[in-house]
Amino acid sequence: MIATGSGDGWVHCAQGHKHWGVFGAAGLLVRFRADGDPPGVDRILLQHRAAWSHHGGTWGIPGGARDRGESAPATALREAGEESTLDVGAVEIMDSYVDDHGGWTYTTVVVRAVEAPPVRVRGTESIELRWVRTDHLGGLELHPGFATTWPRVRRIGTL
């Protein structure tokens, strides 16, 4: 059974997909614009997911299950802080995008960082975290959910 307030657990949405997060889930899309990058190109922080995880071996954004009553931004910031050494207090929330599967949602919370320091892994859910230029995403095997959402969120928070 689920611990009081914990959103950990598998559910099926109205579309028949299996999802992690009883109350939905959220992830943090961290954007950084480096001097000298081509116009329209940002760097985003990506997580290389551990082999044992759902869609293991793919690249996506840090995130996870929402707890009961927890907002999507709070979830995304908490999960990124649990999974990485990113200073989540040093980012500015720009906007969010909700992917509604009918009875289950995943919210991508888009934030802007003023710098892109090395970010290390915390815990066992990631192989590595890496800043990737948005024009280089095609060279990575993306998490299916992130791959589907990226065209919808790619312009949120751009300068």
Rank of each mutant, 00 (worst) to 15 (best):
T85M: 01
G139M: 03
L46D: 06
A65C: 11
G36K: 15
G139F: 02
V109A: 05
E82H: 08
S126Q: 00
G27N: 12
L140F: 07
D100M: 03
V153F: 09
W131E: 00
G138E: 09
A3N: 13
A116W: 01
A113V: 08
W20I: 00
H136N: 05
E83L: 04
A14F: 00
Q47E: 02
T58D: 02
G7K: 13
R120W: 00
G139C: 02
R130H: 06
R43H: 11
T108K: 12
S84Y: 05
P39C: 05
G5Q: 12
H12P: 00
V98Y: 06
H12A: 05
G81I: 05
V41T: 07
T108M: 04
G139P: 02
S6C: 09
R68T: 09
V121E: 03
T107Y: 03
M94R: 15
P73Q: 11
Y106Q: 10
G81P: 05
S84H: 10
A51Y: 05
D37K: 13
R33Q: 12
G138T: 12
P62S: 11
G60Y: 09
D35Q: 13
G27Q: 12
T158C: 06
I2Y: 14
V22A: 07
L46C: 04
V98A: 12
I44P: 06
H12N: 07
V109R: 04
D99M: 14
V114L: 09
G138P: 08
S53E: 02
L45N: 02
R33C: 10
T105V: 11
E70L: 13
A113W: 08
G56H: 03
A34S: 14
G63A: 11
T124W: 04
T158D: 11
A65W: 13
D99W: 14
G16V: 01
R31S: 02
G7M: 11
R78P: 13
V91T: 10
G102W: 04
G81V: 07
G102T: 05
V22M: 05
G57K: 08
R78T: 10
T75I: 11
L45T: 00
R66W: 07
A34V: 10
V119R: 00
F23M: 12
H101T: 03
G69T: 15
P38F: 15
V114M: 08
D100R: 04
R112C: 08
R33M: 04
S96Y: 13
G7I: 09
I93R: 15
R155C: 10
G102K: 05
S96H: 15
G145M: 12
T58V: 00
E92A: 14
V91P: 12
H55N: 11
T149A: 13
G123D: 00
A72I: 12
V114N: 08
R33N: 09
W104R: 09
G102A: 03
A51E: 08
I2V: 10
T148D: 14
H19W: 09
L159V: 00
T134N: 14
T105S: 03
G102P: 09
I156E: 05
H101V: 02
Y106E: 06
V132A: 07
G7Y: 13
I156L: 15
R112S: 07
G36M: 09
T4V: 11
T148V: 14
V11Y: 10
P38D: 14
L140M: 03
V109C: 01
G102D: 08
A65V: 09
M94Y: 15
F32E: 02
R66I: 01
Q15I: 01
V98G: 05
G40E: 07
H19K: 01
P118T: 00
G123N: 01
V111F: 02
R155M: 12
R49D: 00
